[in-house]
Deep mutational scan, measured.
Amino acid sequence: SEEELIEKAEKLRKEFEFIWNGIRFIIRENADEIRRFEELLKE
Results as ranks from 00 to 15, higher is better:
residue 32 D to N: 10
residue 2 E to L: 11
residue 37 F to D: 01
residue 4 E to V: 07
residue 17 E to F: 02
residue 19 I to W: 03
residue 17 E to H: 03
residue 19 I to S: 00
residue 37 F to K: 00
residue 2 E to D: 07
residue 36 R to I: 12
residue 1 S to V: 08
residue 15 E to Q: 10
residue 40 L to Y: 05
residue 30 N to Y: 15
residue 7 E to N: 13
residue 30 N to S: 14
residue 37 F to N: 01
residue 34 I to M: 05
residue 15 E to I: 15
residue 20 W to D: 00
residue 15 E to P: 02
residue 15 E to H: 13
residue 10 E to I: 09
residue 43 E to C: 15
residue 7 E to S: 12
residue 22 G to T: 15
residue 8 K to L: 14
residue 40 L to W: 10
residue 1 S to D: 11
residue 25 F to H: 13
residue 37 F to Q: 01
residue 30 N to A: 15
residue 31 A to W: 13
residue 9 A to V: 11
residue 28 R to V: 10
residue 43 E to A: 12
residue 26 I to V: 03
residue 9 A to T: 10
residue 36 R to G: 05
residue 6 I to T: 07
residue 34 I to G: 04
residue 17 E to W: 13
residue 4 E to S: 10
residue 41 L to T: 01
residue 39 E to V: 04
residue 20 W to F: 04
residue 23 I to M: 01
residue 6 I to C: 14
residue 27 I to P: 08
residue 30 N to R: 09
residue 1 S to N: 10
residue 26 I to E: 02
residue 30 N to E: 04
residue 33 E to Y: 13
residue 39 E to N: 02
residue 30 N to P: 05
residue 35 R to G: 05
residue 14 K to D: 07
residue 12 L to S: 06
residue 3 E to Q: 06
residue 9 A to W: 13
residue 2 E to R: 11
residue 14 K to G: 02
residue 12 L to F: 02
residue 9 A to I: 12
residue 42 K to F: 12
residue 29 E to S: 10
residue 26 I to S: 00
residue 5 L to C: 11
residue 41 L to K: 01
residue 13 R to F: 13
residue 17 E to G: 04
residue 12 L to P: 05
residue 34 I to S: 02
residue 35 R to T: 02
residue 12 L to C: 15
residue 13 R to D: 03
residue 37 F to P: 02
residue 39 E to S: 02
residue 19 I to G: 00
residue 18 F to V: 08
residue 42 K to T: 08
residue 36 R to E: 03
residue 9 A to M: 13
residue 42 K to D: 11
residue 35 R to Y: 07
residue 6 I to Y: 08
residue 19 I to E: 01
residue 6 I to Q: 03
residue 40 L to G: 02
residue 10 E to Q: 05
residue 11 K to A: 06
residue 13 R to H: 11
residue 28 R to N: 11
residue 33 E to M: 15
residue 21 N to P: 03
residue 2 E to Q: 08
residue 7 E to A: 12
residue 17 E to K: 01
residue 2 E to I: 13
residue 38 E to S: 10
residue 17 E to M: 04
residue 43 E to G: 12
residue 35 R to P: 03
residue 10 E to S: 06
residue 4 E to Y: 03
residue 31 A to H: 05
residue 21 N to W: 13
residue 22 G to S: 13
residue 21 N to H: 09
residue 34 I to Q: 02
residue 15 E to N: 07
residue 37 F to G: 02
residue 32 D to K: 06
residue 2 E to M: 11
residue 12 L to E: 03
residue 14 K to A: 09
residue 31 A to D: 08
residue 34 I to E: 05
residue 23 I to V: 04
residue 33 E to G: 07
residue 13 R to E: 08
residue 25 F to A: 15
residue 18 F to R: 03
residue 28 R to Q: 10
residue 4 E to C: 15
residue 33 E to V: 14
residue 14 K to E: 05
residue 22 G to N: 11
residue 11 K to Y: 04
residue 6 I to N: 04
residue 43 E to W: 10
residue 2 E to K: 12
residue 30 N to F: 15
residue 8 K to Q: 10
